[in-house]
Amino acid sequence: MTAENAMELVASILFATALAAGPTTPSPEALDAVVAPSDRMNASDLDERTRLAANFPNERNRLFASEAAAQGRWDDALRLFTTAARYADKYSQHRISLMYWHGVGVERDPALAYAWADLAAERMYPSFVVLREKMWLELDAAQRERALHEGAALYARFGDQVAKPRLAAEITRQNTQITGSRVGYTDGRLYVHAPAPGANTIEDTQGGFDLRAMYAPWRLDPERYWAVEDAIWKDGSVEVGPARKAHARDRDDD
């Protein structure tokens, strides 16, 4: 078993208890709040995004988690979002918070939902910060106290201080596996062809894939990777889903 597979197994075990609890069937409103429009992909889009994410465990697991969410496979969605979250994926941490807030795939737990939302807002991405604050206003005193306790444990396992080095190590590892000209020649092209059905030679191809985006320089440098990610998320235009009000029984009656 590789180190990455071992870590993914641990991530799966972390939420086994929650999954075994047998959550109730979520309402249509809850599903609407948790399933993102981008979860729904046609086969061509999924194939292209899978190739692009192949060397990035955060992107790869987030992608498959989104696919699982679109299909209603919530146990898979939670497991895969959790694995992506281990590699500093703030969007996956946000999606987990929505699952707990709305009780989709897990028993509803507003305190734990807030803890995940706070983790997702660690880099102060505006949309995540706003959502976190909306959740906080819906918690009663006891829930807030537990949320802070849960949050400390989550930061120890998924916070940037420990999660970013995991992704950096994966990026560094993939850099050692890239091949090229041994005499230093490059013309900026990175294109592969797929043989046509029944083809006997490489010349008999149909279409192909441009892999330049996969090996873009910024994706091969952890600091540049996070700088691009920060620029994308800080513009506030991402889809985060609504934080609907908690049920009456979850609110402070005072």
Rank of each mutant, 00 (worst) to 15 (best):
A147S: 11
R146K: 10
D76G: 03
T176A: 15
T172Y: 14
Q161R: 02
I96F: 07
G159R: 01
A88M: 08
M124A: 11
A147E: 01
W136S: 05
V130R: 11
H94Y: 11
P195N: 04
A77K: 05
D204Q: 15
S127R: 09
T172C: 08
A85R: 11
S97L: 05
V183A: 09
D140R: 00
N175T: 15
R79E: 12
A121H: 10
S127F: 06
P110T: 00
R86K: 11
T201S: 09
E133N: 14
D160Q: 10
Y100H: 13
D140H: 02
K134W: 02
T172D: 15
A168Y: 08
Y114E: 01
A120H: 06
L131D: 09
V162G: 06
A77M: 13
S97T: 02
T201H: 03
D76C: 02
G159D: 02
F209C: 01
G103Q: 08
N175P: 14
V192F: 15
R132Y: 10
R144A: 00
Y185A: 12
E107M: 09
W116F: 14
A77T: 07
Q174G: 07
L119V: 01
A68P: 05
D160G: 14
G188V: 02
F128L: 00
E170K: 15
L131Y: 00
T82R: 13
T186R: 09
H193T: 12
P165V: 00
W116H: 06
A68N: 10
Y91C: 02
Q177H: 09
A113E: 03
A199F: 12
G105S: 10
Q177P: 07
A117T: 01
D109F: 10
A68S: 15
Q143S: 15
L131F: 02
L98K: 13
R157P: 07
R173P: 12
A121M: 14
A196C: 06
W136C: 06
Q206I: 13
G207T: 04
Q71C: 11
A152Y: 01
R173Y: 13
A194K: 10
A121N: 12
M135Q: 12
R166K: 11
T201C: 00
A163S: 11
D204V: 06
A196V: 05
Q177N: 08
T82A: 14
K90P: 09
P195Y: 03
T83K: 10
T176S: 15
R157M: 13
S66C: 13
D204Y: 04
A115H: 03
R132P: 01
R157A: 13
V129Q: 02
Q177Y: 08
